[in-house]
Write a protein that binds this DNA or RNA. Structure first.
Lengths: 153, 153
DNA sequence: CGCGTATCGTGAAGTAAGGTAACGATGTAG
DNA sequence: CTACATCGTTACCTTACTTCACGATACGCG
């Protein structure tokens, strides 16, 4: 009955809390959510041309230029020439960037554990299933909307 | 074992999906997440001075000026003089704004139902409890960090 | 080989959300 | 009445995005 206790509103609240927490965590590090996302993608792909990062992040190539500029200036990332394609530049993590990423992975794992600890063990499996179901449904809804919009065009 | 199936990652994914869905839903309406947030707060508070909106949204007064400018230009909101304090202006929803907000409330309720429908009825109570627990824990963690940061200053 | 076309990264310029600092107009307490 | 606080706004900065244009380069094809 409490209007703020339905799952949708809780999820929206949790989204907002994540956002606030990340903003706080990055204070003074020269990092931001977008830059960190790039680092995360880069750690997953390994050294990549900017084009590949744009594709993986679903963002324009121009935007990658700006994010890489900032990360390079802050020392997390470096640019080097592509060995065979002289148009392309390869972006890779610096040693400092690698360290940052492993710290981040550790923090991420800790947070995961910490949050899960807050949940009654008896509820965990259902929570996990429920979140999977919601994510799947959400993905489907967004896809439907995208298809509907495509027809109009 | 699947690294993408733990609750934290699911929650982050769901956050991202919400963001994408909202951005898509607002296309061509002159609305954005921030502007809609203001409308939402305004609908909750009723006609308010900009100061009150800034407080309620946790954002600078300057930013409210900009959001109200945009919403006023799009016809969702109007400014009128405060009856007793000539420094202040009162922001209120226009008729069009009221209609938009009730449409939005309806869509919100539909989405809530739709997403919950995707969850096995047997899992719903546990999901709800789990989300509450996670939100509570997250709030506590953020508070701790804020306190820790306050000590340093 | 040469030519057209596609691709890579970036300059230029725009939009949107945020922030701080300063200021004029006004309210309010002493 | 004078000092101080508050309200909204001007001016300016940052970050994250976009599109468009362009130079340099790769590449397929006749």
């Amino acid at each position: 009955m409490d209007p703020t206790s339905n799952p949708l509103d809780r999820l929206l609240e949790i989204s907002e809390l994540f956002r606030a927490d990340m903003a706080r965590a990055f204070e003074g590090t020269g990092l931001t959510a977008a830059r960190t996302h790039l680092l995360w993608v880069l750690a997953g792909l390994g050294p990549s041309p900017q084009q590949a990062l744009a594709g993986a992040m679903g963002v324009s190539a121009r935007n990658i230029t700006g994010l890489v500029d900032a990360l390079e200036a802050a020392g997390y990332v470096k640019r080097s020439p592509h060995p065979t394609d002289r148009r392309a530049t390869i972006v890779s993590l610096t040693d400092a960037g690698e360290v940052t990423m492993s710290d981040m992975a550790r923090d991420h794992a800790n947070l995961s554990t910490n949050l899960l600890d807050a949940v009654d063990p008896a509820d965990r499996a259902a929570l996990s299933r429920g979140l999977d179901a919601i994510a799947t449904r959400l993905r489907a809804l967004i896809q439907e909307e995208a298809d509907a919009a495509a027809v109009i065009r």
